[in-house]
Simulated scan of single mutants.
Amino acid sequence: MMQDKPHERPQLKKNGFTFKQFFVAHDRCAMKVGTDGILLGAWAPVAGAKRILDIGSGSGLVALMLAQRTAESVTIDAVELDAQAAQQAKENVRQSPWPSRIHVHQHDIASWAENSNRHYSLIVSNPPWFTPGVACSSPARDSARSTATLDHQTLLRSAALLIEEEGFFCVVLPETVGQNFIDLALADGWHLRFRFDVAEYANRPPHRVLLGFSPSTGETLVERLAIRAEDTHYSEDWRSLTRDFYLFM
């Protein structure tokens, strides 16, 4: 997938990216700012959300995007296992317009879910999806992206402990992984309520899928987006989704 990113902020020494309302440093995070996180942060259904949880928050990108999209009364917990990434997320939050609304916790989500008495109207995750043993570019990236660190069954069951009855649990995954995740979720009692397929061009098959599940039954809204138009420029759908974040969109 082509990793189109916002312009860098050269006057800052930290490695990261500038969005319209905030800056994300990610030099100490295994997973850098990329299209998957931006998709999830821009798409997740925030209407009516009062308390939000970001699982595997990394640099804090998605939590910051959701803070931008929601009212001042909405609080966000961001749980991240890696100590360096969690510390960097805390710094990104402190320097953002929403330091009092986002709370970063360096914790394992399985134990967090078992010991928490909180419930959330929206839970989001850009989860690991590599099969254990598939080499990544670094040990830290391997830890962040391998399901050995957080398998999908554990993720689904942790979210089930924390979700409100009418809430939504949303993930972004490669399209090839998405159907297996749906099968696991349905077997665990979740209901698929949103499916958003993303392709590079309209005439190509989707390579990413955003999925929204709920404990409650209801219709499934299925949509599709192409990132680029036939002339290779960004499509109007992509611009509409991301224009509140990208500097020059």
Rank of each mutant, 00 (worst) to 15 (best):
V93S: 01
A185P: 09
N15P: 06
R118I: 10
T18Y: 13
W129C: 07
C170F: 11
V134F: 01
Q153N: 13
M31Y: 13
L161K: 08
D77F: 05
A144N: 03
A229I: 15
N126V: 01
K90S: 05
D197P: 10
D197H: 12
N117F: 09
P139S: 12
R239W: 14
E230H: 15
A67K: 00
I55N: 00
W238Y: 15
P45F: 03
Q21A: 13
V46E: 04
W112M: 09
F23A: 01
L156A: 14
H119M: 07
G58T: 12
A140W: 07
R228I: 11
E230S: 15
K50D: 11
R141P: 02
E200T: 15
F169Q: 08
P205F: 07
D36Q: 07
T217D: 11
N126E: 13
T217F: 14
S158Q: 08
F23R: 01
G41M: 04
F169T: 07
Q68N: 04
E72G: 10
R28Q: 10
D244M: 06
Q179T: 10
G212T: 08
T131P: 03
I76H: 00
H119C: 06
S121G: 03
F19I: 02
S146L: 10
C29E: 04
L61C: 02
R239H: 12
E8K: 11
H119S: 09
P127F: 03
G212W: 06
V134G: 06
D151M: 05
E164H: 07
Q84C: 15
K50F: 05
A185T: 06
A63T: 03
A30K: 07
V62F: 00
C170Q: 11
R208N: 10
W238T: 08
K20T: 09
A86G: 12
P139Q: 06
K20G: 05
L162G: 04
E114S: 11
S57F: 00
A229T: 15
L162T: 01
L210E: 06
R193H: 12
V177Q: 14
R141N: 14
Q95D: 11
A47I: 07
R208A: 07
Q153Y: 09
A144F: 03
Q88K: 08
D54K: 02
H103I: 10
R157F: 05
P97F: 09
T18W: 13
D27M: 06
G56F: 06
A25L: 00
